[in-house]
């Protein structure tokens, strides 16, 4: 089963890369952007077949390694 995780920076954390991407897009003519925030995307292929168990394991992975909860939030996307 494949489970996806999206990690984003928390609201108050400065995202200089997002800012530069915003400026560049602006310069390219995409001028109606309010803000760009850059994040990370993970695809985890697990042997677990039980949906809830797999999600619980991935949640543990997020807390222990994939995200740093001081600055980041994680979102687990339901496996299809």
């Amino acid at each position: 089963m494949k489970i996806s995780v999206i990690i984003t920076l928390k609201k108050d954390v400065l995202d200089p890369q997002g800012k530069v991407i915003h400026q560049t897009l602006d310069g390219m003519g995409f001028q109606d952007i309010n803000e760009v925030r850059q994040g990370k995307y993970f695809e985890i292929d697990t042997k677990e077949t039980d949906n809830d168990k797999a999600k619980a394991k991935v949640e543990e992975m997020c807390k222990k390694l994939l995200a740093n909860l001081v600055i980041e939030n994680y979102k687990i996307i339901d496996p299809k």
């Binding site: 954390v13 200089p16 890369q17 001081v70 600055i71």
Partner: peptide
């Protein structure tokens, strides 16, 4: 900081 032995995190330098 990643072990949690000291608080906080180290982000990318402000001016990249």
């Amino acid at each position: 900081v990643e072990t949690g032995l000291v608080p906080g995190v180290l982000l990318r330098n402000k001016y990249l």
